[in-house]
């Protein structure tokens, strides 16, 4: 893969200027390719370009929603930011320190500042450990406090996420999905992190429980001054919780702006198609809703289309789209940037 989103390196400065705060997380041209090996000699014949040149900032205290369809690289982005997967290229800065250049032990120390909430509450808790040990584990790893103070902290965390502190000696299988997700949240909060990647934290839950967990996350955010990267495919949920929204397609971010900008004035045809799929809870309006049906499937990330990656499915595609990779550029104002990667975005402004 030789092409990159060349413009993306320049853009974050404009975002910095509006907030005049140093971002908590800076992602620069992040790439994660998984090699494909074939043959007797296991030679590399290609790569799945799961994340291919992604750049964005997350400012302290905000929630950045990351949406996109299955397989577009959302989760890989989250995990690569946390260095659970080592990036192929690019950089991630936490408070200005590069996580990619950090040594292993230094990185382990920094991990207490950034945590993750997982999608599947059934596989994210070790079935052989008690709730107390699960939640207290990050404290144990970072050698925080003694056994008694850790136990106290665990009980405090259980209360914080709305569980009974008596549950400390229980095992995960004794809990429901929603309760398990709360345990996962409590574990992520144990070391008082400033940044949390929530990787589809609600998509495995019952709809009735989803609202509870999202509200919990929202309340914790204001109470503990957290910063989230909220990964989801549920567009309404993302609109509810996010301050800014990034839309991903095939390993790239195609649109990034303030929540209402993205939802009310989408500038990328892919975003428009995604948004047109949200059902409206009003039968009369729903009847008139215009759906943009995308043709074909998502192309293989091992062999992405030339030019604009969306052009084979795009209704507005022209010759330039087939050849030239669109720049990820600001179509909003200096104070209210609206980034989009589309040659024809001016049409939609």
């Amino acid at each position: 893969m030789s092409q990159t989103n060349t413009a993306s390196n320049g853009t974050p400065s404009s975002q910095d200027s509006i907030t005049e705060v140093k971002p908590l997380i800076e992602v620069r041209n992040l790439k994660k390719h998984f090699p494909i090996r074939r043959g007797v000699l296991q030679r590399q014949v290609g790569a799945v370009q799961a994340v291919d040149g992604v750049s964005f900032n997350i400012i302290k205290g905000e929630t950045l929603g990351l949406v996109g369809e299955s397989g577009c690289g959302k989760s890989t982005t989250g995990r690569t930011i946390l260095q659970l997967l080592s990036p192929t290229d690019g950089d991630v800065y936490l408070n200005g320190h590069s996580l990619t250049e950090m040594g292993r032990s230094e990185l382990r120390k920094q991990r207490r500042r950034m945590q993750m909430i997982f999608q599947d509450p059934y596989s994210s808790l070790n079935p052989r450990m008690t709730v107390g040990n699960i939640i207290g584990e990050p404290l144990l790893i970072h050698n925080i406090g003694n056994a008694a103070s850790r136990r106290e902290r665990v009980q405090e965390l259980l209360k914080l996420v709305g569980l009974n502190p008596y549950f400390i000696n229980r095992y995960p299988h004794e809990f429901s999905g929603g309760q398990r997700q709360r345990i996962g949240v409590a574990r992520a909060l144990a070391t008082n992190p400033s940044f949390i990647v929530a990787d589809e934290p609600i998509s495995a839950l019952d709809v009735s429980i989803q609202a509870q967990v999202v509200n919990l996350l929202d309340d914790l955010k204001s109470e503990l001054e957290l910063t989230y990267l909220f990964i989801a495919h549920d567009l309404s949920m993302v609109r509810y919780i996010s301050d800014r929204v990034a839309v991903m397609y095939l390993g790239r971010i195609v649109e990034l702006s303030e929540r209402d900008e993205v939802y009310d004035h989408p500038l990328h045809p892919y975003t428009q198609a995604l948004l047109s799929a949200i059902p409206i809870p009003d039968p009369f309006k729903e009847e008139k809703r215009q759906r943009i049906i995308l043709e074909g499937d998502v192309p293989s990330p091992a062999n992405p289309p030339t030019g604009c990656r969306f052009h084979p499915r795009c209704g507005y595609a022209t010759d330039v789209c087939r050849v030239e990779d669109p720049e990820f550029r600001n179509l909003g104002t200096e104070n209210k940037p609206h980034m989009a990667a589309c040659h024809h975005a001016e049409k939609f402004v």
Binding site: L84, R111, M116, F118, S124
Partner: peptide, 25 residues
């Protein structure tokens, strides 16, 4: 498994991951 990733995200080293999470399961 996610719980192994979770422990890794919490900052566990290889020894801890193998002995506490992977081997017992």
């Amino acid at each position: 498994r996610d719980y192994v990733q979770a422990a890794q995200a919490a900052g566990a080293n290889d020894f801890h991951l193998i002995l506490r999470h992977i081997l017992p399961n």
